[in-house]
Amino acid sequence: MSQLSIRKLSTSIVFLLIGIIFITPLLWMLSTSFKFENQVFEQPFTFVHWGHVNFDNYRTILMDTPFLTWFWNSIFVVCFSVILRLILSVFGGYAFGFLKFKYSGAIFFLFLMTLFVPYQLTLLPQFIVYRYIGLLDTRWALIIPNMIDILSIFMMRQFFLSFPRELISAAYMEGCGVFKSFVKIALPLAKTPLVTLGLLSFFMIWDQYYQPLIFLKSKELFTIPIGLQSFQTQFGKAYAQQMALACLAIVPVLAVFLTLQRHFIESVVSSGIKG
């Protein structure tokens, strides 16, 4: 065996081991979802009790919990939030990164400063504000705070900072205004960072727990993360049922990732090359 193939083999083994480490929690989740509660932490660990597989966890989730309502709420909130966030971020990023205007640096710095405020600190003021404007216990209480994300504006700003000015100048010369040149030239070229941003935002908002917990009251509006926590009692967790729900909840996340992963990887690679 040549030295090159030994090196390749050892690299593959290392990557395989790393892959196993990353996939183990997912396998544990899947395995637990088919167990009874008192088998969850059994020693020694058994992946599946083939003679005693418990499908009841899935039946309970689908029949005895408002899983579909939670699922729909999560989809609704995430889709609206991501779309609105992308629109506002790309506008903001273009204004701060490409157009620039008087005091834009200072204003952007103020925006960035808000990143240093821990989210938990803002919950109480947000709660009070939403109560006064009547948004508590509505889906908008989850969508509005997700619409504007400073990190997303920052990402888009970084993209537009290195955007070739010649392209927009040419558009101006062709008679386009600021808005038209943005829509016709800048926006199509920003597709890759937007897809990446959309993907990251999707995962982030899908997992959000505190906002629905604090701002929602009606069970009909709960999202998947709150549903997951409802298997937590004061004495402990119903892990097997929780994992069954997690397995079902992960499907859209996987679907979105698998559909868009090409763009995501493209973006990472291209930013790596630029960097």
Binding site: L124, F127, Q229, Q232
Partner: peptide
């Protein structure tokens, strides 16, 4: 009856925010 149901783990956080906000 208007029940407000909160998972146990975060019950105190929600209670504190509701009480402190004057809800």
């Amino acid at each position: 009856i208007d029940p407000i149901s909160v998972p146990h783990e975060q019950y105190i956080s929600k209670r504190n925010i509701m009480m402190a906000s004057g809800e």
